[in-house]
Design a protein around this nucleic acid. Structure first.
Lengths: 164, 164
DNA sequence: AGAAAGATGTTTGATTTCAAACTAGTTGCG
DNA sequence: CGCAACTAGTTTGAAATCAAACATCTTTCT
């Protein structure tokens, strides 16, 4: 019957302070896709951060470098949309990547506001290393979802696509 | 053949600056569970934030209030573990909720370090409102995943469980 | 052409989060 | 018992992110 409405602690005829100690439950949240999505992404990202953090590599760099690699000449705006982050979030990341010599800016043809990004040779090398961490991380994820990977990916893409 | 290794822009025999304009792709990232998980959670949470933000309700409050409601007498530590956030993240949230009169602290029996949390009547009311937003938001998600909801939930839970 | 509307990137301020260091209390073990 | 190891919660500092305001440039419409 999938009860979703709030039932304020209808612990039958028990006055005030129960003591659930550690057998605590997710309760109503357990049936929410949104909350489980949050928990899964959170756990996964923290694990990835641990992995790449061991080598002093910023985990956020991987996505940006990979997107530039697969879309040479991409603009910051386009990068922002693809990665789902706000455009203002890109600014410091791109600045750092440029100062680290991993990406280069190129002029745009007919738009003086924007610029185009490409990887430098160092950027390619850095991406290779980060991609190795990402590959190992995603192998773990592959193992967890087993043979339903494509179905899982399809559902995740649907969710992302639904909320523009 | 699912190529996962990095192939630094193997655009055959093209020198430097292509112009992908807006037909940009996720490239290698498109096949990563981790990245699609990030995009989906990000899009979903931003939508939820927009919804609850319209009413000046902090989206982060919902999870905490719901967990306290379903686990009366829960401790901050337990709350931290259930919601997957660091314990230090709980401190300001619980302070704000207490100052807003939504939760109350209770003494623990044999542990002077900790304390137990319960919802006040106002907290129950607030939870009801937030839960209404959450319910509507999750209805959208339900519609997106269709009849594979339970399978989706099972996979998300597996992912969260795998990374302790 | 010229003005209005829109797009791009940056800056700034506020939020959220984590991780490490810390204090205080508890538990285990000799 | 008494000390070592652990656990609970807080404080602090750093990082990531969003949203709004802004300057600059481009597109659209009349």
């Amino acid at each position: 019957m999938n009860k979703t409405s709030v039932q304020p602690n209808d612990s039958s005829a028990k006055s005030a302070d129960a003591e659930p100690r550690e057998p605590a439950t997710l309760g109503a949240l357990d049936h929410y896709i949104g909350f489980n999505l949050l928990l899964a992404q959170n756990a996964s990202f923290k694990a990835f951060k641990r992995r790449s953090g061991e080598h002093a590599l910023k985990p956020g760099w991987f996505g940006v470098l990979s997107l530039i690699n697969d879309n040479p000449g991409i603009t910051p705006m386009s990068l922002s949309r693809l990665s789902g982050r706000d455009k203002s979030t890109m600014t410091p990341v791109l600045r750092d990547l440029r100062h680290a010599g991993l990406i280069a800016r190129g002029e745009t043809v007919g738009d003086k506001r924007s610029y185009r990004l490409t990887l430098t040779p160092s950027g390619v090398e850095e991406l290779k290393m980060l991609a190795e961490h990402a590959r190992r991380h995603d192998e773990d994820l592959d193992a967890v979802v087993g043979d339903r990977k494509e179905e899982f990916l399809a559902m995740l893409r649907s969710v992302a696509a639904y909320f523009d």
